[in-house]
């Protein structure tokens, strides 16, 4: 119980610090006493709104995987845009759309949320609905309606990283 309390205070302080950093970048206000007041206000906000159960504990390995994940996500976003641009400018739009079902191994709700959002950001896929560990995905160019193979093609790349981060 004691350990849990310390952890939740740590999470709240870090959320407050990030919010203060946002304020600092946004206003370029260097005044230390202003920043202290903002930090206090941010801490009140964090105290009210942050639930610590949803956040995984921060370890160096998770941090490293998160950074790699962000780079991977940016690569996928650029690929997605080139892919969509290629489709849009062709005289006959080459699409073969459908809604397929995939399964995720992730357990934590926030991990699933990030997975669904990442799928939406990547080439030709858009998450429509989620039921338990099944995701329903609109795929602009369906190559496999089989659940197993679709999972490999759409989800596997992200799951590799997210399993470590939220596992």
């Amino acid at each position: 119980m004691k350990k849990h309390t310390i952890e939740s205070w740590g999470v709240r302080v870090s959320v407050a610090a990030v919010l203060t950093l946002f304020y600092f970048f946004w206003t370029h206000n260097h005044n230390v006493s202003d920043l202290a007041v903002i930090f206090l206000l941010a801490f009140i906000v964090a105290w009210g709104f942050v639930t610590t159960q949803t956040f995984p504990r921060l370890t160096p390995k998770r941090l490293a995987y998160s950074l790699v994940y962000i780079l991977y996500l940016f690569k996928e976003i650029i690929k997605a845009n080139l892919d969509v641009a290629r489709r849009v400018i062709q005289p006959r739009i080459p699409i073969n759309p459908g809604i397929v079902e995939v399964r995720t191994r992730l357990k934590s709700p926030i991990g699933r949320m990030i997975l669904a959002n990442s799928i939406t950001l990547t080439p030709g896929t858009l998450s429509v609905d989620i039921k338990g560990d099944h995701l329903f995905i609109h795929w602009i160019d369906v190559t496999d309606i089989d659940e197993q193979k679709a999972t490999e093609k759409i989800v596997a790349g992200f799951e590799k990283y997210l399993e470590v981060i939220f596992g």
Partner: peptide, 11 residues
């Protein structure tokens, strides 16, 4: 969905 649609697992 458009007529080109090949599958709709959600429905």
């Amino acid at each position: 969905l458009t007529r080109k649609t090949v599958a709709d697992k959600l429905a």
